[in-house]
């Protein structure tokens, strides 16, 4: 269980990037954070990853307070951030220094197979396409078997086809160890495709506006009526979050009713 308690972040220049964030994510749950740019989504992930310090509040993983990068927390950035001097397989193995060479090899080979890049194992990152590079970055985070995986708009720079195939790769990897996933996106379709819950955020200061459960069965079919209904619900919430008059989200009851309807 990942718990964020009264988390706030004010940058040195006085920007209130986050204010009083409270969120619990069950083990194995996929939560997607949605919101326009400047909502503090990246800031929130950086706090959880331990790359920045919160101004106030606490981050707990299974009851243990996190303060700094933790072996059980992995992150995939918006850019692949592969090390250009390492081959694809060495990039994936980057966080596996502490285990034996044979196990490392096995895990990397397995990850390469899962992301479908086995034949590219020995190539340099510069020889891969953007989508392939991002797959390697996801594999690099997965091979350490993190309990929590953070993804910051990892597919935003890719075309729709590549994105759809990466969704499948991501879910394929997730199926194996079922880590908790926090996925930042500004793509509602993406959120509904992947997540168990959508958390809609609002800017200035960054805070949570509303949470919507997405209880569709997997695998999800984008042409299904329930899928479209969910997309519409998230869009409505997003829409309300942008209007200053709607400070309070519609309450749980309506939503439950809507969820039960189909």
């Amino acid at each position: 269980m990942l718990e964020l308690e009264h988390l706030s972040k004010t940058y040195a220049d006085g920007t209130r990037a986050l204010s009083d964030i409270n969120l619990s994510v069950r083990q194995g749950e996929i939560v997607s954070l949605i919101g326009g740019s400047g909502c503090g989504k990246t800031t929130l992930l950086r706090l959880i990853a331990g790359l920045d310090q919160a101004s106030t509040g606490a981050i707990k993983l299974d009851g243990e307070a996190l303060s700094g990068p933790h072996p059980s927390v992995g992150i995939v950035f918006q850019e692949p951030r592969l090390l250009p001097w390492l081959s694809v397989s060495d990039n994936i193995a980057f966080g596996l220094d502490h285990i034996s060479a044979t196990e490392r090899k096995e895990r990397v080979a397995h990850a390469l197979e899962k992301i479908g890049l086995i034949e590219h194992a020995k190539r340099w990152p510069r020889d891969l396409s953007g989508g392939q590079q991002q797959r390697v970055a996801i594999a690099r985070a997965f091979v350490t078997n993190p309990k929590v995986l953070l993804l910051d708009e990892p597919f935003s720079a890719l075309d729709a086809f590549t994105r759809a195939s990466l969704h499948e790769h991501l879910l394929g990897l997730w199926e194996e160890t079922r880590p908790t996933v926090v996925l930042v996106t500004h793509d509602v379709q993406e959120a509904v495709t992947l997540a168990d819950r959508a958390v809609v955020m609002q800017p200035k200061p960054g805070r949570i506006f509303d949470e919507l459960p997405l209880t569709l069965s997997r695998p999800r079919d984008k042409t299904d009526l329930p899928f479209e209904t969910s997309v519409r619900r998230v869009l409505t919430a997003l829409d309300h979050s942008l209007k200053p008059s709607h400070q309070q989200p519609q309450r749980e009851r309506d939503r439950q009713a809507a969820a039960l309807w189909w």
């Binding site: 990853a49 331990g50 790359l51 990068p69 072996p71 992995g74 992150i75 950035f77 850019e79 951030r81 090390l83 001097w85 980057f94 966080g95 220094d97 350490t144």
Partner: peptide, 23 residues
Amino acid sequence: KLVEVGHVFRLSRVQLARRILLP
């Protein structure tokens, strides 16, 4: 950004120098 990758994997100062800065 690459240095941050080192932080994420909790490299010590020496490891960071050897595995990221040097190359």
